[in-house]
């Protein structure tokens, strides 16, 4: 279910045409309208599962379970009522928000200085460092789950939101460093030299020269880290229990082998997708800039 979140944001990004400022750099004088149609078609294709989920969430359980599906079935808010009626819904959402926001802030605090040291003032053998960071992602997370679980049991960190924050930070850090590095590499060296010549110190340079250029990149990185943490299921499922369960773990609890549950799960999935969608829309300008900056390279 959580997998629908990125497709929604992708759809949002697709649906919103690139800004004029970006188009100006394009060598094409008049874009072929067919491309616009194609873009909308692809956008719609990505959005359809999410829209279907929203529609199903508004149906009654019996209508949600019929085959062929009934498009015009009467609408109801029962699914949402049962989601918010559950005493575990708010704690799960709050846990998810805590884990995602705190880990994203930590990742930014750690990855920006690291990226600075790997691009603007590259340290010796910076490419080795980059490769090492990438290599930490080689191990499939599923292979680390058992050792992590045993570690958590012996240290008493099981079912603690702090453990998830630490793991999400570690999980997203390599990606964030890579992303931030490519964004900071966009900052022209001439601008830095000019700032230095004008007598700006490090802090001043960072604030007035680097930050404005890197802002879209920071936003894009933050959003990606937030999305990854928000929708993470495997670690949360294995390492939390009664207290620290996150929203994706709570989502799965609606599934039952006896009785109908599709509408409830869809309602829950819609609610859980909303924060990511909202964050995506809020950061849309920066995001399109930021993501295409990275893509151009």
């Amino acid at each position: 279910m959580a997998a629908t979140a990125p497709s929604t944001t992708a759809a949002a990004a697709d649906a919103a045409p690139p800004r004029q400022t970006y188009r100006k750099h394009s060598k094409l004088n008049r874009p072929n309208p067919l491309w616009g149609v194609a873009a909308w078609a692809v956008g719609l294709l990505f959005a359809t599962p999410a829209l279907w989920m929203v529609l199903t969430s508004l149906h009654r359980e019996v209508d949600a379970a019929t085959n062929p599906p009934s498009l015009l079935a009467p609408l109801t808010l029962d699914g949402y009522r049962s989601f918010f009626g559950s005493s575990n819904a708010w704690p799960a959402l709050i846990n998810s928000a805590t884990a995602s926001v705190v880990s994203t802030l930590l990742v930014l605090a750690l990855s920006i200085p690291a990226a600075y040291a790997l691009s603007i003032r590259p340290v010796k053998r910076w490419s080795d460092v980059l490769f090492f960071l990438l290599s930490t992602r080689f191990l499939p997370i599923v292979a680390a789950v058992l050792p992590l679980y045993l570690f958590a049991v012996t240290t008493g960190a099981l079912d603690q939101i702090g453990l998830l924050i630490a793991l999400y930070t570690a999980m997203n850090l390599p990606i964030a460093v890579w992303m931030m590095r490519s964004f900071l590499a966009e900052v022209p060296v001439e601008m830095l030299e000019a700032a230095q010549l004008d007598g700006a110190g490090l802090i001043r340079t960072l604030r007035s020269v680097v930050a404005p250029v890197a802002m879209p990149g920071i936003a894009a990185t933050a959003l990606i880290c937030f999305i990854f943490s928000w929708q993470e299921l495997l670690l949360a499922r294995s390492l939390t229990g009664v207290v620290a369960g996150t929203a994706p773990v709570f989502l799965t609890s609606f599934v039952t082998s006896q009785g109908l549950f599709l509408a409830q799960v869809c309602a829950a999935a819609t609610v859980v997708s909303l924060p990511v969608l909202i964050a995506g829309f809020a950061a849309q300008d920066k995001l399109v800039q930021g993501l295409s900056l990275g893509a151009v390279k």
């Binding site: 930590l106 040291a117 240290t155 630490a166 930070t169 570690a170």
Partner: peptide
């Protein structure tokens, strides 16, 4: 060069 990594390790330990 190592500072960010060390920081990451430190924060992990601290949180744990």
């Amino acid at each position: 060069r190592r500072a960010p990594l060390a920081l990451a390790a430190l924060s992990t330990v601290a949180l744990a």
